[in-house]
């Protein structure tokens, strides 16, 4: 059914869901903070893909404009997040995300 109809926009959405789910699972499973960040990037990409898809489905440029903002936010997030990771890692080179539990009072 799907193949016969050619490329449906909804396929992109299914793909985006898959990417998002993989990213979310990875975020929950991995302990290396850097990898966790990469998983966050995966999820962000899944969302941008959704935006672009909807932009095409609705024939509206607004969806693509939002992606620009997502990119900016992602860039800012990566900068701050990596700054935090550098600060942590410099003091404890083998720290994992779980070790941050030490910060609990």
């Amino acid at each position: 059914m799907l193949l016969a109809a050619g490329v449906e926009p909804s396929w992109y959405l299914v793909l985006a869901s898959a990417l998002f789910a993989i990213g979310a699972t990875g975020l929950l499973v991995r302990r290396n903070p850097l990898v966790m960040f990469m998983c966050v990037e995966l999820m962000l990409n899944a969302v941008t893909l959704t935006f672009v898809t909807f932009s095409r489905m609705l024939d509206d440029i607004g969806g693509q404009a939002v992606v620009v903002f997502v990119l900016v936010v992602a860039a800012a997030e990566v900068v701050v997040g990596l700054g935090i990771i550098v600060a942590i890692m410099r003091r404890r080179p083998d720290a994992t995300a779980d070790d941050l539990a030490l910060l609990k009072g």
Partner: peptide, 14 residues
């Protein structure tokens, strides 16, 4: 509930 484990919190969000 406040275990201090970031991934636990993330699981809560998920």
């Amino acid at each position: 509930l406040q275990s201090g484990f970031v991934r636990n919190y993330a699981l809560g969000i998920a």
